[in-house]
Amino acid sequence: MHIAEGFLPPLHAAGWTVVAAPFVVHGAREVRRVVTERPDARLLLGAAGAFTFVLSALKLPSVTGSSSHPTGTGVGAIVFRPPVMALLGTVVLLFQALLLAHGGLTTLGANVFSMAVVGPWAGYGCYRLLARAPLGVAVFVGVAVADLATYVTTSLQLALAFPDPTSGLLGALLRFLGIFAVTQVPLAVVEGILGVLLVRALRSW
């Protein structure tokens, strides 16, 4: 779920950029470390980022809503780990804004925080916590949680920007959660299932 260009007030846009920045810088450092160890990692990471972009551009059948694309970052976090995903996710979000007009430049910070930081970490955390569970369960929960965490974070970002005049922050949060639940909850389930099928197919290679 991408916050559109110009949707957030300037202070919020700037604030989320500041919040997301350390994670992206950490990701960049991690990438630099990996590349120093393995020179061909430049190409492998580029391929991994392109994969995430392409995955997020897939149209899903049988999910409500016109903009039902997977976020791809849950699977990405499980396969490539969250710090790397923070950087790759940032570039993916930049490309989505420039090539597909999904999201935007001023809202890049907010989107990076929800989709490339919170989602991957939450999903990856659940996946690791379920290390003893069957792989399918761990992957499903990991990917679905990554999606749901992203959606909750985005709703929170919107609520902070547009608190309800009467019921305040909480009211606004519930309102945004409610409106976007229609597309985001089924999406999390479908992407979770796809994640399991993808990782299974991958293991059979």
Partner: peptide, 8 residues
């Protein structure tokens, strides 16, 4: 990395 991503 971004340049390779774009090509890929």
């Amino acid at each position: 990395v971004a340049e390779v991503m774009y090509r890929f």
